[in-house]
Amino acid sequence: MVLKCIAIDDEPLALRLISEYVSRFPSLQLVKTFEDAISGAEYLKTAQIDLLFVDINMPDITGIDLVRSLKDKPMVIFTTAYKNFAYEGFELEALDYILKPIDIKRFTKAVEKAVDYFNYKNKTTVEETDESLYVYSEYRMVKIELNTIEYIESMEDYIKIHITNDKTILTLMPLKKVLEKLPSTKFQRIHRSYIVPVGKIRSILNRKVQLTDAELPVSESYLDFVRNWKQR
């Protein structure tokens, strides 16, 4: 598997650095580079590209506007010298957001995320052997190991994923959508506001699920889960 990618940046030195970094990864193929956003945008209208490295501050149109204009978006990694565009990158579901000057270690981390996410999103179904979940949080894609999830809580338009060591990850996603991304034998919905990992249930009593560090209610709609769990 090789990801086809292009780079768009109005700084020739930045393009050369990205080209040199990309050449170190057998999993990447740099198809073209562009020094202006308009030419890059025109190319993307017809080309099949998996990954786009794009600067944000450019003189003709910004990288933000370029990505926003694309009908079929590839995975996007923004490269910029400015931190204040992070929210726009989040809105466009950018895979990552790398600040210049680009460090090879930081670049490697972004590429590894791109390869992992490409494999993840190209699965036709959720497999019971899946061990991770990808969500957008803190302006970039975050990988969560399934075995670290304690429970998932709905907060209107957002969900809060409670993970090991009292950490939480907040992401804009309905509970129903995240449930579709999880293996059904490992995670079950017990309430309109909660999803729990089945393997971490310690007991169920009086329509309450006892987890390691939390007690959650079971609503009327999900009592079948309680009956099935007790018959295990």
Rank of each mutant, 00 (worst) to 15 (best):
V54R: 03
L30K: 10
S219N: 06
R189H: 01
K105R: 14
E138D: 12
Y222A: 02
E220D: 10
R227A: 10
E11D: 15
Q48H: 15
L223E: 06
L175R: 05
D157W: 09
L28K: 08
P74F: 07
K143S: 03
I149T: 03
S39N: 14
L13G: 05
F225I: 01
A47N: 12
L51S: 11
M75V: 03
S137A: 13
Q231I: 05
D103S: 13
E128M: 06
K32W: 01
D213W: 06
T212A: 09
S132L: 04
I159P: 01
Q188N: 05
T129W: 08
T212G: 01
L17V: 08
I190E: 02
T212F: 08
T125A: 15
K186C: 01
T46P: 05
Q29Y: 12
E11N: 14
T80H: 07
F225T: 01
S193T: 03
S27C: 12
E93A: 10
N119E: 15
Y87P: 07
V22A: 13
I6P: 05
N206Q: 12
G199P: 00
V135N: 02
Y158R: 06
I102A: 12
L175P: 01
E127P: 05
E20S: 15
F34E: 04
T125Y: 15
L44E: 09
K105P: 01
T212E: 06
L95W: 06
